[in-house]
Amino acid sequence: MIVPFSHVLMLAGILFLLGMFCAVARRNLIMIVLGVEIMLNAASIAFVGASVRWQSLEGQSFVLFILAVAATEVSVGLAIIVYAFRRTGSFDPGAYNILR
């Protein structure tokens, strides 16, 4: 393995933090979903790195599952966002306080 495992983990951690920041701080629903996707991908990188590190296929299979879940999540999430935009006319999560 050319790239050391610690570098892979560091990359995954940085990506995860970026995704977290994106999900928490951005005031746009689409950007929040994007942040969640980034966090999922960070986890996937960590899995792939681990599977290479220990020469085992389980990590890669987890990544396949994560990709599938991410795809469905994006489709459902975008559908909800479109519907919410139609209801309120805004992407701001602060506007969705009808149930409050």
Partner: peptide, 17 residues
């Protein structure tokens, strides 16, 4: 307490993190 529950999902996310 209701102020926390102001419909801002991001706060909840933040708390979760």
């Amino acid at each position: 307490v209701a102020l926390l529950n102001s419909g801002m999902i991001q706060y909840r996310l933040l708390v979760t993190f």
